[in-house]
Amino acid sequence: MTATATIDGPDAARAKSQAGEKSASLYRMAMPGHLCPFGLKSKSMLERRGYRVDDNLLTTRDEVDAFKTAHGVETTPITFIGGQQIGGYTELKKHFGYRVLGKDEKTYTPVIAIFGSTALMSLAIALNVHGGFSIQHFLMWFFATSMVALAIQKLQDVEGFVNGFLGYDLLARRYVPYGYAYPYLELYAGVGMIALIGRVSPLVWLVAPVGIFIGTIGAISVIKAVYIEKRDLKCACVGGGSNVPLGAISLSENLIMAGMGLWMLGLWFAA
């Protein structure tokens, strides 16, 4: 049930939420110029959990301000369940037992999303281009596409990336412009490796040394910062705004870049 809200006081709002065993009262902003996404997400969550939602829309700024004043809150939406004021969308998630990450809490979710996507993409490419699955072709496509995907993440906010990168990269600390060049070098190496997969070409000498260089410097920097100095840092590998912890993921990224370069040079010499 959706209706334009009357500004109920706290007691009235609690009473409405007690109307049934699985009922909830939701107050959310739905003004002509702004439909609150957290209100819609709260409504969807409640309905998925089997609640009948008394959906109260706050359609003007005056209604929003009056509701905040009446209930002593600073934001909307606000949900009431069983006569209890639950709070906003984050509080509602906690109420239902969903994990809510703190602002500075570290997570591997971004890298899982990237590597999971590039793994599926690499499998599809290997099957299409090479006519069947081989672990060598899959790994080469996976490593090269992952380098490109990680470079894209950095290039979205180069300044933010550099701010994090300067926290641990040994070469960037001595020569700051290297930090700005790094995402472009990673992109160059990744795209070059994609172009050379399955080929033995002298162009490998324009690509492989770049991957070996930036990968080796990066790996040494991570080992020093994390495993020798024991520093707790955020990894800039997926961009400056991420909360991915610096450690095994970043070390793997750098070792993969260096390893891909060495692998390609090895194929050149073997030919």
Rank of each mutant, 00 (worst) to 15 (best):
S23E: 12
R48H: 09
W141G: 00
V244Q: 14
D169Q: 09
M264K: 08
A208R: 03
R49S: 02
H137W: 08
Y227M: 12
G218N: 11
V64D: 01
R14P: 01
G215E: 11
N163W: 09
T4C: 00
S23G: 00
D157I: 04
T90H: 01
T4I: 06
L92T: 08
L203E: 02
L46G: 09
E63D: 03
A258K: 07
V226K: 15
L40M: 11
G266H: 06
G132R: 12
F115H: 01
Q156C: 01
E21M: 06
T145N: 00
K154L: 05
I112Y: 10
T145H: 01
G160C: 07
H130G: 00
K16V: 08
D104N: 11
A258G: 14
L92Q: 07
S44Q: 15
V210T: 05
F138D: 00
E186T: 09
R174H: 12
L251C: 08
V204R: 07
L46I: 07
D104R: 13
A24W: 01
E159R: 07
D54N: 14
Y89I: 04
I135T: 12
D232G: 09
V226N: 12
I114V: 11
R28N: 05
R173P: 07
R99V: 10
D169E: 13
E229T: 12
Y184R: 14
P209F: 02
A126F: 04
A5T: 09
V53F: 04
A5P: 06
I81D: 04
P202F: 02
A66K: 13
Q84C: 00
F96D: 13
L40R: 13
L255A: 10
E105N: 08
E91L: 04
N254R: 14
L58W: 04
A151M: 05
W205R: 07
E63A: 12
T69R: 14
G261M: 11
Q85A: 07
S44E: 15
I125L: 07
F67E: 00
N128I: 14
I197L: 06
S242V: 06
I256P: 01
L170V: 15
L92D: 07
L171S: 10
K234H: 15
G116R: 05
D169T: 10
A126I: 06
P10E: 09
S242T: 15
S250V: 08
T75W: 05
V148W: 03
L262V: 10
L233K: 15
T90A: 02
K106H: 09
K224N: 10
G20K: 13
T59I: 13
G167L: 08
I194L: 15
E91K: 09
S23M: 04
Y168R: 11
I197M: 03
L40H: 11
Y108I: 10
S201M: 03
M31S: 03
D169H: 10
A195T: 10
A195M: 14
T76P: 00
D54K: 03
C237K: 13
Q18G: 03
I220W: 11
R14N: 01
R173H: 11
E21P: 02
Q153L: 03
G87C: 06
V73W: 08
V162H: 04
A195G: 08
I249T: 13
A181F: 14
R173K: 15
Q136H: 05
I217D: 05
T216Q: 05
A66E: 03
P245R: 15
V148M: 06
G50S: 10
E74V: 12
P37K: 14
A181C: 09
